[in-house]
Computed example of a mutant assay.
Amino acid sequence: MTTKKFVPVMLTPFEDGNAIDYTILEDLIEFYLKAGAGGLFANCLSSEMYHLSREEMLASVSFIVQKVNGRVPIVATGTFPDTLDNQAAFVKEMYHTGVDSVIVITSLLAEETESEDVFEARVNQLLALTDDIPLGFYECPVPYKRILRSDFLGELVRTGRINYHKDTSLNINSVRAKIAASKDAEDFALYDAYMGHAVDSMKADAAGLSCIQGNYFPELIVWLCNHYGDDSEEVDKVQQFFAQNMSVMHDTYPASAKYILEKRGLGITQICRNGSELKNTADYDKLDTLYCQFNALAQEIKLNMVSL
């Protein structure tokens, strides 16, 4: 079985007063890498990118690039609500931070009511406006989710410009079709965001996983990337753990992930700019139960956990 990688969708730590906490951001980078991350996805939805200024996006990504110092590849989102010309200009600015690839948000190139023809024409326009910068795609669910057609993704990959795709289709057949359409490309990787079929996705030859669950328990995602091909009860239990806890990990995210990381010893606050928060005792109880279940599973499979 081919080795798979985990690419965390990075959180943004905030201080009291909502400024980015760069001290904790550096600790978070090291936590991801010690856990075995094979890359980092900076400035994404988990980073609360829509609640960062453009100056903060560029500064935080530049900081991440500097601290990683070439240890793993880094991708970062570079398109936001604006004209196509201005999106292209920001892609160039983001690339100059030193990232390996700039990510394009599919739902920002066409309105939800606009056709696939309109969307695909704008993708090609963006490619023409961004020189030879390596690009990737992210089917971000905000402002709405636009899923790439597999045939179109295959066409884009064959241009040599597209080397990354984060899939959020939640459909294993869609994942398989995209992988088949891009199978001859040497420098292209598809990462699945959906843990409900993580094992099947990697068996279908996805490059790995890029999921919010990695902001709770990155070591467990890395373990699954390393063991997905094993015919074992342990793999089944890890897959089941993620499938059964899907809602609790999504309901108050990313505040919930920050709470778990705080429990694990990272000096991160629960502060979020996007309004996410733990509102009552029930929210905390669910996450405490989740943490207990993780610890029991980690002990059962003899998981090497990162100490913080």
Rank of each mutant, 00 (worst) to 15 (best):
T83P: 07
P13L: 00
L127H: 06
N69Q: 15
V9E: 08
G196N: 10
V306L: 05
D236K: 14
K166S: 02
I103D: 06
E116H: 09
N215E: 08
S150I: 03
G160Y: 06
L25T: 08
A180L: 08
E120N: 15
D236Q: 14
Y50L: 08
L261K: 04
Y22L: 07
N69W: 12
L52C: 12
D251F: 06
E15A: 13
C292G: 13
Q213K: 04
I301Q: 09
Y259E: 10
V199Q: 01
R71L: 01
N86Q: 04
R264P: 00
A193T: 10
A298H: 11
I20Q: 02
E300P: 00
I221Y: 02
A42R: 03
K263I: 00
F14Q: 03
H165Y: 13
D82R: 12
A35H: 02
T3L: 12
A128M: 08
Q244H: 11
M94A: 05
H250L: 14
A243L: 14
N280W: 02
A177S: 15
Q213F: 10
V306N: 10
N163L: 04
G229E: 09
M57A: 12
S115T: 15
Y216T: 10
A296Y: 07
Y164P: 11
T113D: 10
D167W: 05
S232V: 03
V65A: 04
R122L: 04
V61G: 07
E114M: 12
T252I: 02
G36E: 07
L109F: 10
R71M: 01
S307E: 14
N226E: 15
D184P: 09
E26T: 10
V61I: 11
L126P: 00
D236C: 10
F63C: 07
I179L: 15
G214W: 06
N226C: 03
S115N: 09
A298S: 15
A206I: 04
Y164V: 04
H165C: 13
Y138G: 06
A206E: 05
A185C: 06
A255P: 02
V102W: 03
Y216E: 07
N245T: 13
G78R: 10
L224A: 03
